[in-house]
């Protein structure tokens, strides 16, 4: 299977086992990063290797150069210096998927796969990673650990995660912010169907606690396009409330409301140095992983 294929949600939707999915995503992703410049972010020396274009010049060991007249760069033993917390929204709305059963991932599937891949990557880099799932309240909480065995626990928890219940995103985030005492990286996966003021206030709570925050705003393509063709009775997956409407008549208004919502999130997040990443469930995981690595790099 080609690398690109491994990163496509529709490919992964056909696979079983989150462990496998996470591994394939990460391997596929890393394969594309030839001679990863991201390798080794810790401080304990490991070995020398020859300099290759792309390496940062400051990592050249000038003493060795003086002795051997060749460029060598230092490689360091990776070590746990990051505490990442994966926060996965498991409210009823996250179960939504617009495509056929085999052809698309639900938002929750997408979020768990992405969270699993990130967990895999973090553990592989010897970072500590934890997991919290929530809807109206925190459903499960695994504190950050860096052992490989812990990964299996995380993946098992993610795999067994089922969507249900309403969203009370703000409350849950506030609780989590209170619970995470040590500074670290908070990665939130959610569709953010909640009052934007409260959500942003909760996110600022993390920032107040000196956490770095990456926000993956996950939406289904249909939620973005609202491309229903005929008059429909829509049933809210969280509240089971119904609304009969002609989507053609409200489409423009809906899209505008969503766009306004996103714009507000983006601008407020930018203001508080929160990485805001809108993402659709038909989008490659590569984008999300890149976003993470960018952030990780800045945290070095």
């Amino acid at each position: 299977m080609k690398r690109e294929e491994l990163l496509k949600p529709e490919t992964l939707a056909r696979l079983r086992g989150l462990d496998l999915k996470a591994r394939l995503v990460v391997e596929g992703f890393l394969e594309g990063l030839h001679r990863s410049p991201y390798k080794g972010f810790s401080v304990e020396f490991s070995e020398y290797r020859s300099y290759i274009p792309g390496d940062e010049p400051r990592r050249i060991d000038w003493k060795v150069y003086a002795k051997t007249d060749r460029f060598y760069v230092k490689e360091y033993q990776e070590e746990t210096n990051l505490r990442a917390m994966l926060l996965v929204d498991s409210s009823g709305s996250m179960a939504y998927r617009s495509g056929s059963v085999t052809g698309a991932l639900s938002k929750l599937d997408y979020a768990t796969t992405l969270a699993a891949a990130l967990a895999y990557l973090l553990i592989k880099q010897k970072d500590a990673v934890g997991l919290a799932t929530f809807d109206t309240r925190i459903r499960s909480y695994l504190p950050p650990r860096s052992s490989r065995n812990y990964l299996q626990l995380l993946l098992a928890r993610l795999e067994n995660l089922a969507a249900g219940g309403e969203t009370n995103l703000a409350e849950s985030l506030h609780s989590l912010a209170e619970r995470l005492r040590k500074r670290g990286l908070v990665i939130l996966f959610s569709d953010l169907f909640d009052d934007p003021d409260r959500v942003l206030f909760a996110l600022r709570h993390f920032r107040h606690r000196k956490h770095e925050v990456i926000l993956f705003h996950i939406l289904d393509p249909m939620e973005e396009s609202f491309d229903f063709s005929s008059p429909t009775r829509l049933v809210d997956m969280e509240t089971r409330k119904e609304a009969s409407l002609d989507p053609r008549l409200v489409r423009a208004e809906y899209r505008k409301a969503l766009e306004d919502y996103r714009f507000r999130l983006r601008s407020t997040c930018s203001e508080h140095r929160i990485d805001y990443n809108p993402i659709l469930t038909d989008q490659s995981f590569e984008y999300a992983l890149f976003r993470y690595l960018e952030k990780r790099r800045r945290l070095r």
Binding site: G92, S93, M94, A95, Y96, K107, T167, D191, F193, D194, D220, E223, F228, S230, P231, T232, R233, L234, V235, D236, M237, E238, T239, K241, E242, A243, S244, L245, V250, E253, Y254, A257, L258, Y261
Partner: peptide, 18 residues
Amino acid sequence: MKRTEFSSLFFLRKLRER
């Protein structure tokens, strides 16, 4: 009218108001 499950009427609720 077709009955379709939708993630949330969050934005539609806002529209309804207006």
